[in-house]
Design a protein around this nucleic acid. Structure first.
Lengths: 337, 337
DNA sequence: TCGGATGTTGTTAGCGTTAACAATCAAGTG
DNA sequence: CACTTGATTGTTAACGCTAACAACATCCGA
């Protein structure tokens, strides 16, 4: 039991004196150096235990130049996607023996991302994961010569750095092809904000699937990921005669669409089929339960750390590009016409 | 433009040489020491700019004993509540000039919390915020002599440390009193897991409101916050004859309850009124839109940092207890009988 | 028995910064 | 004009750790 008096915390030298060895021997024990007599080792460990010694990682970082801390830059970790990704990153990082320092951006501008990166670099992180789903954030990675290994999540083509992402285009296709296979003439789309790469990818997949089937692509409706924007898009759609299938770019907006349809007396799936994107925990319990495209955020987080740690510990590597496939989840919001 | 060659990063001494001063003068400029001639200051700043110098915060932390980093321990930051709280904490911390290092716990046991705290203390954080909504986490704070100022969020009575929390009891009362005021004979309750302090508080508020009104409190139904557990509780409730009002301990479970009711042909609010808790962004678009109790997570995060920073910068203080009131949000899932 | 390889420990010198103190110089005071 | 005062700068010594090298004992084969 360490005394709680004003006494200063024990340092390596204190342990050394207690064990009757040099401080360097203590350091060797702590770092599992092979050449320490086992009898000496136990003596040192006992002294550590007795004094309640804890190694000062700051001093260690100063000399080793490694902090075993990774930085994470993300945007609005209140949203399910970013939150889940960051959670996956954090778990994977800890499993790999790293700490995680997080910066959640409020605004999305390039300068903000740059600041965050500088911020982390200053702090001495060994590597950085940037969850950069917006075009502007991805661009900020371009002017990034800061000597710290970096991985982008959802970072588009981002030139210099490795990228881990979900195949959004494939997801858009999955959703659209499913709806077409049910016999729908065409598929409407409520898209995400235009500066989000994910939104673009989903639009592209939707459009490609329609084209391949020889169908006309209607004009997509704009949304901003929020349930409210989905609600507004839903009201527009409900007022049109010929809408029988809608692919909504995320589950939250899909909820809004469902709500608008309910209010307008449009029945799902009897009159209109709806597909979402993300598979948030709630969507299974929407009315009706939502067919959607699942993103494995956990895998994305895990992979991003794998790639980063590989770069950290394996020296300079080829930059990688890792794509996680989305999966289709069938529920009752879609049925054969 | 700093060269990208293998050249080592510039240090204070390099700046000093470039500006023709001592490294200590550079340090003074960086720390806004008053006694530096303005002409010298500009010369130093120019040198810093020219060399692209960035101060090494690790070395600084070693000598000052302050890292300007705060630790945050939380449980499952995938959930809306914790995610929002942590987000609020992070924003407030950054505004106060602190970095944030986060540990998201997967399991809730006491040992896990202890480990996380040690982890952060080792890393040299100046202070710690523990988002400790479970009894076990709160208890882990008891054996916490680690010399680092700590604030608990939702930490119950937690003996030694300051606490910031939402008044859960008041929230439970608000929900229950609202339902009673609509004319319901009694109010059923779907509660959260028993080791969560928040769940207990809501139960207590619900029970108190019923007692004051002289009503019998039915046996609460158990849930685990998930929509699925709400769904199951909802099926039970739907099979009973005499249920006209339900207070559900969070919005996600309320979604499950609504789903179960819809499936069983129980109409909300015509036959049964439902109140949730949290006011997640989705609940306004449930079918029907959910009456709920809003928690200001942002304020909780902000206050916790305020309290912590006060302790950090003002020296040892009285431990504080700050309670944030919840607010009532009326929507269509409740109506007069 | 000796030279060299190997195992084990200690000594010394940083890492890049701030703190404490010393030194210098100009300005004001009696 | 000598003498204190305050502003400005430099010098030196930590902070607590690891790396590099030196020192010594031990063991092996020739």
């Amino acid at each position: 039991m360490g005394s709680t008096l004003g006494r200063r915390l024990p340092v390596m030298a204190d342990v050394a004196k207690e064990a009757g060895v040099s401080h360097q021997t203590v350091s060797r024990v702590l770092n599992d150096h092979p050449n320490v007599r086992s009898e000496t080792r136990t003596r040192v460990l006992e002294a550590i235990d007795k004094l309640g010694y804890r190694r000062n990682l700051v001093a260690r970082a100063l000399v080793t130049k490694h902090s075993r801390t990774l930085g994470v830059v993300s945007f609005d970790t209140t949203l399910y996607g970013p939150a889940s990704t960051v959670y996956g990153i954090e778990q994977a990082a800890r499993a790999a023996g790293y700490f995680v320092s997080i910066v959640s951006l409020k605004s999305i501008d390039r300068a903000g991302v740059r600041d965050a990166l500088d911020y982390l670099a200053d702090q001495g992180v060994d590597g950085i994961v940037v969850v950069a789903p917006q075009r502007s954030a991805a661009e900020a990675l371009a002017d990034l010569p800061l000597g710290v290994p970096t991985v982008a999540v959802e970072g588009g083509e981002a030139g210099e750095v490795s990228v881990v992402c979900v195949d959004q285009v494939a997801g858009g296709r999955l959703a659209t092809e499913h709806l077409l296979s049910l016999g729908h003439e065409t598929v409407w789309h409520v898209r995400g904000p235009s500066d989000w790469l994910e939104a673009e990818g989903r639009v592209a997949g939707w459009r490609a699937a329609l084209e391949e089937a020889g169908r006309e692509a209607p004009r997509p409706l704009a949304g901003d990921w929020s349930p409210r924007s989905g609600y507004e898009a839903g009201r527009s759609l409900a007022s049109m005669r010929n809408v029988t299938a809608v692919f909504v770019a995320n589950d939250q907006m899909a909820l809004g669409v469902l709500r608008a349809f309910t209010e307008q007396g449009v029945r799902v799936p009897e009159q209109v089929s709806v597909v979402g994107f993300d598979d948030i925990p709630e969507s299974e319990f929407f009315s009706p339960p939502l067919t959607t495209i699942r993103q494995d955020f956990d895998a994305v987080g895990r992979h991003s750390i794998e790639v980063l740690v590989r770069q950290l510990e394996g020296g300079p590597q080829e930059r990688e590009r890792l794509v996680v496939p989305p999966t289709f989840v069938a529920r009752v919001s879609t049925t054969r016409v």
